[in-house]
Amino acid sequence: MAVTGGVLVLYLVAHMIGNLKIFLGEEDFNHYAHWLRTIGEPAVPHRTVLTLIEVVLGLSVVLHMWSAVSLGKRASHARPVKYQSKKKSHAQGYAVHTMRYGGVIIALYIVWHLLDLTFFVVNPKNSDATPYERMVSDFDPSRWYITVWYVVALLLVGLHLNHGIWSAFQTLGLRTPRSHRALRGLAGAVAAVVTLGFISVPLSITFGWVS
């Protein structure tokens, strides 16, 4: 959970920084998308690095989900009879209690996101358009519901990271009484920066700040 989650967090940070290129203009953004496919050329063939990233990422997602499912299964075996009394404890805040259902929603969101901007199945444009055109038409003001869907999913990602990053340090035994506050702060800061960075792109397009 912790190791695969760590890989995914690092990817998210890189992906978020890449997305922000949209604010540098159409040419920069398209150039960035092209560069991703040509890293290391001509030493390595076209799309080598990107494919490698995709493989590591896919593997991490699968193993992350597998860990979550096995933990969930163990949990239901460990308590076959449930409590009658309904209580809501948020010992470490609300985020902890969104990890499982939130994770499922995030997984569904990733499927949509791939169909949208990787395979162009649910995107208004197709593979003839430039990446910039696809982004801008995707979050067009007339398609505000797509923007809402992205924002909701990204807020869930933020909650997921807020607990997940801290929890990963604890799982890897890197948390000591002294580093507790620092690690909590780090988790909160990374979660906030990643979420706001991602959300800023669809919102800016929908509100017409980027066109």
């Binding site: 902890v96 035994g173 948390r175």
Partner: peptide, 29 residues
Amino acid sequence: GFGGCTNTGECTVACPKGIPLDVIGRLNH
């Protein structure tokens, strides 16, 4: 047959002796 820890922190809140959650960090370490 006990379950796996996901660091929810419910244990330390319920603990009548207030054992802090960082003991789990040490356990993992």
